[in-house]
Design a protein around this nucleic acid. Structure first.
Lengths: 131, 131
DNA sequence: ATTAGAAGTGATAATGGTTATCATTCCCCA
DNA sequence: TGGGGAATGATAACCATTATCACTTCTAAT
């Protein structure tokens, strides 16, 4: 990223002041709501640029990519297949085991993604999920 | 899946007699090559039906879904970001740690996907990957 | 065997997230 | 201070996948 423009700054602020996992369309809409409307192509380019600069992080779900703050310690995700809620969890020992597996294959790790699918505590208890 | 039709049988045979990770288009082309051409929509429906019946397995990559045999013990994948090669690895202890993390959150696991990205041994050594 | 209805097929249109294009604007610095 | 690389925004294009729909095939009950 060569320039941190006002558009990219707006995207970054939005993400950094939340704990959500945003998709491009949600960001576009949220910025529009606060009177900082940005072209959708610029949103996509901005997200890619910000992630490239490690200012935000992302998870690639089946249908779309979602972005979150990068200023958190490493974590993986659990996605509720009923309500779509995304929870974060940390298991440092998993990371170490991944390193072991990679080393065994002569594989040089650049990244990884672990997603657990299932039913969140609210949906599993029948109380309904995200409202 | 209600019926294991000749089309679905052809898809299943193709996958079961290989160790590849196929996408829908590759399956369509391979079947065409062996004179068992199938409509692309039927390929997609067949793959979904076969996976639903646990006769094949899949991994969801960023761009597309890939299918493989289901008659192998559980494993996760390493994807080479240079040549696209997919390697499999098993780390039973990772599974257990995932269970722990889920239990902690009251999350009921239905599935998971762990993909490690990086450079395979051939690409990392500079000898070039898939030709 | 006959047949009604459920399931599957295949050609093709539609969907939807994302990327490419291109004219225009912005901004850094020589 | 002006040339050029970078960014923007509107919109077209892309591409994997799904929906539609007319037609065929299978299955099960009569």
């Amino acid at each position: 990223m060569r320039r941190l423009t006002v558009q990219r700054q707006a995207i970054l602020d939005l993400i950094n002041t939340s704990n959500r996992h945003w998709d491009a369309e949600e960001i576009s809409r949220a910025l529009g709501d606060r009177g900082e409307s940005i072209g959708i192509a610029t949103v996509y380019r901005g997200l890619a640029a910000l992630e490239d600069a490690s200012l935000i992080a992302s998870i690639q779900l089946a249908d779309k990519k979602r972005y979150e703050r990068a200023d958190k310690s490493h974590h993986d995700h659990m996605v509720c297949v009923e309500c779509g809620a995304i929870e974060e969890f940390t298991q440092n020992r998993i990371e170490a085991l991944q390193e072991d597996a990679a080393r065994e294959k002569g594989f040089v790790i650049t990244g990884h993604q672990l997603v657990i699918f299932g039913h969140c505590i609210r949906c599993a208890s029948g109380s309904g999920g995200k409202q």
